[in-house]
Nucleic acid binder design. Structure first.
Lengths: 219, 219
DNA sequence: GCAACGCATCCTGTATGCAGCATGCACACA
DNA sequence: TGTGTGCATGCTGCATACAGGATGCGTTGC
């Protein structure tokens, strides 16, 4: 038997699945910001008991997606405009660092991989398939931070980004916003391919500043 | 009755207390990196049942202090030299940003508060009270990031810093290291008082780079 | 009519029970 | 003697039960 083909069985633990599930429910707006989370109710809806559900809520609380009030359970965290602006400032610092490291450390193959994702995304953009475009967009951002080769940076960035997902998703609804964001993405990939860290940092910063103007009206 | 004096009763939830407790146990080395965490055993030692303990472990897992392996429970995360270097790079980015924002936004009273902490710390330094010095040192770092006025930045920074606490604590054991770190702290406070963001960023970066040379031998 | 108190209900927080899987050891066989 | 297999034990993962506090509504008194 070919050793190469043997992959470890993917182990699921229920609370991990629930973390993903509930996070998606928050991003998609099924669980609205400010609303309380009834453990019994949500558990019944998802077909699980309260124990793994509570464990998932603790995890999400540490990510900042949920606030836990003693004696009153979980509340979906509501982002204030100030919160969003603060998070974008942190993201600028992190992405700028990630971009610099990526220009230094990434292999040509890795950068080519981002280009592939980017071209596919622009195809979805041309076809107007917004949801898929958006998901691939997120994947690209994650990929770029991963290129830095700094796991801590990537996971920290990912945690903050996931908290902003819902807002950025809504913020991209307007076609004009979508267009501008796509153009910025083109610049990003080009800067990365040239390994021009200064240009990359500049466009990443601009992209996030533009994100602020895009999402500001809808908060 | 004076309304001003009424403070809300501090609500303890067991799992929150456990998070603090277990985090301290990891920092103090009671739970050694790489060792498995036996829920029943640890629960009995702490006098709690497994449920809140497990919830606390999920929380710590999301902070990166513990790795959760499905079917095998929790393992205290062991930091590689590369991990530490990566985390310091991220801390440099975050503290530099925090310093810049603090120079811009902090009130004179807030900065004076940091000065008070700093002077107290230098007193402990002069008396050779290392543990108290170290704790106040951490408090100062937290205070400076708090001065930025950016909650996301402060909490992100705090999460990463807590993962490094144990290593930095050990790294400060050598007197020479302690001396150097204390001198850097003097520069920091002076830069902050002058609201010289460039100088502050420079010394913060240098302080963290020095941290690397201090902790590198002991990883 | 309004406000405050009391009660009933619900929900959270914690403990415990049970099933399934990991692990280490002993024994058998080569 | 070394290796592989099978079993016993113990631990994790999840469900459920129970206690205490939060919440909302009805009632009563002013």
């Amino acid at each position: 038997m070919d050793q190469q083909t043997i992959l470890p069985v993917v182990r699921h633990s229920l609370h991990d699945d629930l973390v993903e599930r509930i996070r998606d429910m928050i991003i998609e707006g099924v669980l609205e910001p400010g609303s309380r989370i009834h453990e019994g109710q949500l558990g019944k809806a998802l077909g699980v008991s309260r124990t793994p559900l509570r464990e998932a809520l603790k995890f999400l609380a540490s990510e900042g997606l949920i606030d836990l009030v003693p004696g009153r359970g979980g509340i979906v965290h509501r982002l204030s405009p100030r919160d969003v602006r603060n998070m974008l400032d942190v993201l600028i610092a992190l992405e700028t660092l990630a971009g610099r490291l990526a220009c230094l450390n990434a292999s040509d193959e890795q950068i080519a991989g981002v280009r592939v994702l980017h071209d596919r995304m622009m195809g979805l953009y041309a076809d107007g398939r917004r949801l898929e475009y958006y998901k691939l967009n997120q994947a690209i951002h994650s990929a770029v931070t991963a290129l830095s080769g700094n796991d801590c940076l990537a996971s920290t960035h990912g945690a903050i980004q996931s908290r902003l997902k819902r807002i950025r998703f809504i913020g991209n609804e307007a076609p004009a916003n979508w267009d501008a964001a796509a153009r910025e993405h083109v610049e990003m990939v080009e800067a990365l391919e040239k390994r021009d860290d200064v240009a990359l940092a500049e466009v990443l910063t601009r992209h996030l500043e533009e994100t602020w103007t895009r999402v500001r009206p809808i908060i």
